Amino acid sequence: MLEPRTNNQLMHSAGWLSRYQVARVKENLASSICTRSLSVVERFFESSHDDDELARIAEFHLELVGRLVVRLTDSEVVYSFGERIVALHHGKVIGRHSEIWKTLAVCLARCFENLNLIDRGRLARSIATIPSLTHDASIRSFYQNSWVMFHKIEKRPDDLAVDFVSAEIRKDIDELIFILKDSEENNTGPRSNLAGIWQRLFWMREWGFINELQAQEIYALLVSKES
């Protein structure tokens, strides 16, 4: 019944699962399919072999999860799926499969938008731990902004700011600020990479990950850009 979209089909030609079909899928079936599909994706990222066909299958299963997760009403279940997707970003081989990042990011965003208030905050804290790609020169800049789509997981007016920020996240923010400073002073770094840094920092500021001193440094950089 379901099969991956072939490479010669247009992006909107995913007729194998339309919105109408999604609406008719029972919640327990949707949850079961999401569970199995994520297991397939996890096994793919655990593999040390590069295989274009397996990568396409993994991408299909991520698309499937992204479409069906909106049918779930149990926020705890959706949150568990979101955590599994975040965990994929910490894998050792994910850097070799940048063509899947956008689908992975959309899947994470779909989980995020289907969470309740408490679980959105919990998942935001996990998303903040996703490594920044800025330091990895092997990553093609074309895919940099597909790593995490921060504009699709924005803080809502009723969301609560995080109440704890780990030392690791603080350190990552400091490193990102340093990269921006270095770029400003020495005119280094591709602009596409810098745009991703700004997007990440603005997102982290909205959620309360950035302290006052870091906020002042970011503001100084913004002022220097305008002058």
Rank of each mutant, 00 (worst) to 15 (best):
A23Y: 09
A23V: 02
R24V: 06
R24Y: 06
K26N: 10
E27C: 02
E27I: 01
N28L: 09
N28Q: 08
L29V: 15
L29K: 09
L29Y: 03
L29P: 04
A30K: 12
A30C: 08
A30L: 11
S31Y: 05
S31F: 03
S31P: 02
S32G: 03
S32Y: 07
S32R: 11
S32P: 01
S32V: 04
S32D: 06
I33T: 01
I33V: 10
C34V: 02
C34T: 00
C34W: 00
T35W: 05
T35G: 07
T35E: 10
R36I: 07
R36M: 10
L38R: 00
S39D: 10
S39R: 09
S39W: 11
V40L: 04
V40R: 06
V40I: 12
V41K: 00
V41T: 04
E42T: 07
R43F: 05
R43M: 12
R43Y: 09
R43P: 05
F44I: 15
F45K: 05
F45C: 09
F45W: 14
E46R: 15
E46K: 13
S47Q: 09
S47K: 07
S48A: 15
H49M: 14
H49A: 14
H49K: 15
H49S: 13
D50L: 10
D50E: 15
D51V: 08
D51E: 08
D52I: 15
D52E: 11
D52Y: 14
E53M: 12
L54I: 09
L54S: 15
L54G: 14
A55W: 05
A55R: 14
A55C: 10
A55T: 14
I57D: 12
A58H: 07
E59I: 09
E59D: 15
E59N: 15
F60W: 07
F60C: 03
F60R: 00
H61D: 07
H61Y: 10
L62T: 05
L62D: 03
E63R: 11
E63F: 12
E63G: 08
L64C: 02
L64V: 02
V65D: 07
V65K: 03
V65T: 12
V65G: 03
G66V: 02
G66D: 05
G66L: 02
R67S: 06
R67K: 11
L68I: 10
L68Q: 05
V69K: 01
V69A: 00
V69D: 00
V69S: 00
V69H: 01
V70W: 04
R71G: 01
R71K: 10
R71H: 02
L72T: 10
T73W: 11
T73P: 02
D74W: 04
D74K: 11
D74I: 05
D74V: 11
D74T: 14
S75D: 11
E76P: 06
E76W: 14
E76D: 09
E76S: 13
V77S: 10
V77C: 08
V77A: 06
V77Q: 14
V77F: 12
V78W: 00
V78H: 01
V78I: 13
V78Y: 00
Y79M: 08
Y79V: 04
S80F: 02
F81Q: 07
G82F: 02
G82Q: 04
E83W: 08
E83L: 13
R84V: 03
R84M: 04
R84F: 02
I85S: 01
V86L: 03
